[in-house]
């Protein structure tokens, strides 16, 4: 360079060019060699990253296609762990539910469910972890479910959608072809912390969770009475 920059300015300009990605690939490599040995230069780059960051504010958000997430999860984890592509088999199974009220009433009466709406404890999980994203076919309701096998706790976090006025979200567990078992009523934004009944704790893998639209306080019959709003299958992670 022919400019009249001090060595310090020269370094800073180079750090800025590096941050902006203006250097040629050869220059980039040479700079990175220096960078690895010079904490001051590293700080200079960090400073520039910080300075330029607000420029990204004007970039509009664009929602990527839904298939992008499924592909990412499959590529990273080998299988689709999320319910966002709600498998049709789960939805088609739902038709059976309305006829299974009697069995479900008995089951629901036996299984005591604890519903806590406070924040979940932040203890690290040591047991098996299962996860599912319960989602509506049109994405109007999305709830993330995480089950920690070491505590038996099932944590629901709503990320999209709220219950209609005077209505409640009720959470159900379905194992195989059995009738849905109520796990309790969630908050209006789809959040809840639930201790899974011991009978269900051994069958979390492959368990289907569903959220139905119910009268205030939950289903009066012990079986889903309203529309099924979201479903997802629990998957081992």
């Amino acid at each position: 360079m022919t400019e009249d920059l001090t060595p310090q300015e020269e370094n800073s300009a180079l750090a800025a060019e590096y941050t902006l990605r203006l250097l040629s690939p050869e220059e980039e490599r040479a700079f990175e060699t220096h960078l690895a040995q010079d904490p001051q230069l590293e700080a200079e780059v960090a400073q520039w990253v910080h300075h330029f960051a607000p420029l990204a504010d004007e970039i509009a958000e664009m929602r990527p296609p839904k298939t992008a997430k499924a592909k990412l999860m499959t590529d990273l984890f080998g299988e689709v762990t999320q319910g966002q592509t709600a498998p049709s088999s789960i939805w088609s199974r739902l038709g059976l539910w309305q006829g299974l009220t009697l069995a479900a009433t008995a089951a629901a009466a036996i299984l005591a469910v604890m519903l806590v709406t406070g924040p979940a404890p932040q203890t690290p999980a040591t047991g098996p972890l299962y996860v599912s994203e319960l989602s509506a076919q049109d994405d109007s309701l999305r709830v993330l479910a995480v089950y920690d096998g070491s505590t038996g706790g099932l944590r629901l976090t709503g990320t999209d959608g709220t219950a209609a006025t005077g209505r409640d979200f009720e959470l159900w567990a379905i194992i195989g072809d059995n009738a849905p078992v109520s796990l309790g009523v969630l908050t209006d934004d789809g959040t809840g912390n639930i201790i899974l009944p011991p009978e269900l704790q051994s069958t979390v893998g492959g368990m289907v969770l569903a959220i139905s639209d119910e009268p205030d306080g939950g289903s009066p019959t012990g079986a889903p009475t309203g529309a099924v709003l979201a479903v997802g299958e629990m998957t081992d992670i």
């Binding site: 970039i59 958000e61 664009m62 929602r63 990527p64 992008a68 997430k69 990412l72 999860m73 984890f77 762990t81 999320q82 972890l129 996860v131 994203e133 999305r142 993330l144 995480v146 976090t157 990320t159 992670i237």
Partner: peptide, 14 residues
């Protein structure tokens, strides 16, 4: 992985 999924939902549009 659940946190990763949430992080994706929160930031992928940006």
């Amino acid at each position: 992985r659940a946190a990763f999924s949430k992080l994706y939902d929160a930031t992928s549009a940006k």
